[in-house]
Nucleic acid binder design. Structure first.
Lengths: 358, 358
DNA sequence: GTGAAAGCGCTAACAA
DNA sequence: TTGTTAGCGCTTTCAC
């Protein structure tokens, strides 16, 4: 920007030389003093700090980045922005990252094409010192690309080899849900999944379905193929999946939804179909979304912010060179019983007050 | 990073000189060719492109940033990350920003201290070419600080002078809600607000309350101070506000909630208090949150992604030097009638099927 | 504890 | 249309 183009009030920011002049030291000393490096006399440091403050001096990130090779920025990569889970993970990670003095570069994959572009073109190349990858199962060839970035990576809720990972014990959570239904007396249990058609191949969906089928078998039950139905993740997906399931000749007495958002969609469809929950149909979700208490949904709670925060901490350790970059962490899940599950209508047993929408 | 520290497979990325050598041209030609500048022979451009591709060359953002003064990054600043509205705005803006070739630096204010720090220290200084500010009312002294950044700013849903702004006609939306209740026959109408205690001074809360009181007066009604209650924004805030309101000697027959999330909290409290919605209490929200259809909430819909997208477009125009940086845009709102509003129990009139929670 | 000097990898005048 | 030449504003050896 040449001087003529500048707006009247605008003035070019102070450089490290300006600060050096004002403090009566050399630029290198300014640099050292301001970054808190050792080998700076307290009095000098003080003088430099004051000069910098008076001139509103802040080091140019581009210049120091170019000189040092560090960006003081970390990338957070999510499949979508609109899902509650991702947002909360981002929130948890953001807080830790900012507290550690880094900025957050947010990258939204969006769809399958976006995912491919991400691994192919590596748009975060040289822009970040580390990456938190949320809920993406990294394929082997993708992992190679990631390595080419030359920065540490941690993963939340995804499978990945050779990088730090934090998540929950998904299998334990799913089993918890199935057992709860079984203990209530249900023998006909369906499952509503996400997964289909997004092409983003994110980590969770497949895993939960496999475990569900295993848990059903463990309980000595069988489920029907028409009772295990996938659709897009989210409320609308859950609604559509439930519609499809309800079109079977015989329907189950209980539904396990892969996420609370899918469960919410199910609740809406069941209400519109006039099927009382939990009298005619029990529904259990997964997440403990903040809306779960509003719609009185029984669910498997997982700590979401905490997973983001843990991944960020892992990453920061890795960027600092300490810490095992291959660490894996599994946070606990917990059953939260509310009003959307009850014994099947045929059975005796205690009754819970029904779930209501508002 | 010295050569010894490098991991085995890692190799230093190609520089613009490497590409120049391989293509048999000078670095400046490489630069021009790769950035699509005019005055490059098609054949040359082609040769350069191939060389760059073969060497996996990508320009160092720090170096080109330092040389050009541009960052190809835009900052999005939000008060919180955990609120649905903000997320959707970010989503809408992100898409436009990325499509225009910029990266997104996400900055979360978090709380009052974070807000102050933001305007005081300007952490986005020289890191972005423009800023989208979400739902922040910019105070005059803050505006001066923003100007010091020397980059264009646009605001979503906030008041701000001298910068582009997009939002909705809040007043029209609020009046729509109040009139709907009045037409149903309600005369005792309360309001649940956010606002209190966050200290973040974000834009919307105060505005909606003022308009609400105006609309009540317009309708020739009166409301009581105990019926207009504020709490933290969000579900828990709405729940607490409703509890407080219900402790009045006489309660209204209808509630206008400042946001759907506040309304959700209200619905939960009303359910727990055994007050049937809409029979004993009508509730109307604001936003058309995706959960509104699940809990059957009547609400005033506003386009959220679209506001973020519009703000991003405004910003990009401003960064490119075209476009009026003072443009203001108001997107339309729309009443969405669902099952949470009905005539008050005393009155006659048509009945709607009740809202249900799950 | 401090300073001098040499880059970091690009872009942008200017010249050719 | 292309090449040459200076920087952009820091950090970082290496001397002192």
């Amino acid at each position: 920007m040449t001087i003529e183009q500048r707006a009247p009030g605008e003035f070019s920011p102070a450089s490290i030389f300006d600060v050096a002049d004002r403090a009566g030291v050399s630029p290198s000393t300014v640099s050292r003093a301001l970054r808190g490096l050792p080998n700076v006399a307290p009095a000098t440091r003080e003088r430099v700090a004051r000069a910098a403050h008076e001139l509103f001096y802040v080091a140019s990130p581009a210049a120091s980045g170019l000189a040092s090779g560090r960006t003081t920025t970390v990338g957070i990569v999510v499949p979508f922005l609109s899902r509650w889970f991702f947002m909360r993970v981002v929130q948890g990670a953001e807080e830790v990252i900012r507290a550690a003095g880094y900025d957050v570069l947010l990258h939204n994959l969006g769809d399958a094409a976006g995912r491919e572009r991400f691994f192919d073109r590596l748009p975060l190349n040289r822009k970040v010192d580390g990456i938190v990858l949320v809920d993406v199962t990294v394929q082997p060839h993708e992992q190679a690309r990631l390595q080419a970035l030359g920065v540490p990576v941690t993963v939340v809720g995804g499978d990945a080899l050779g990088v730090g990972a934090v998540g929950i014990d998904d299998a334990a959570g799913v089993r918890m849900a199935v057992r709860h239904l079984v203990h209530l007396g249900h023998r006909d249990i369906g499952m509503l999944g996400g997964d289909a058609a997004t092409g983003l191949n994110f980590a969770v969906p497949g895993r939960r379905r496999t475990t569900f089928l295993g848990a059903i078998a463990e309980a000595g039950l069988v489920t029907k193929p028409e009772w295990v139905v996938s659709s897009d993740w989210g409320i609308e997906g859950g609604a559509r999946a439930t519609e499809r399931l309800l079109s079977s000749r015989r329907v189950p007495t209980a539904l396990f939804a892969e996420s609370d958002e899918v469960a919410f969609g199910a609740l809406r469809t069941l209400r519109l179909a006039g099927l009382d929950v939990p009298r005619r149909m029990s529904v259990i979700g997964f997440d403990d979304h903040e809306m779960a208490s509003v719609v009185n949904l029984t669910t498997v709670a997982q700590p979401v912010d905490a997973q983001g925060a843990a991944a960020a901490r892992l990453l920061i350790h890795a960027m600092l060179g300490h810490a095992d970059p291959f660490a894996r962490l599994a946070l606990p899940t917990q059953l939260v019983i509310r009003g959307s599950t009850a014994p099947p209508s045929g059975a005796g047993g205690s009754r819970r007050s029904p779930a209501v929408t508002h």
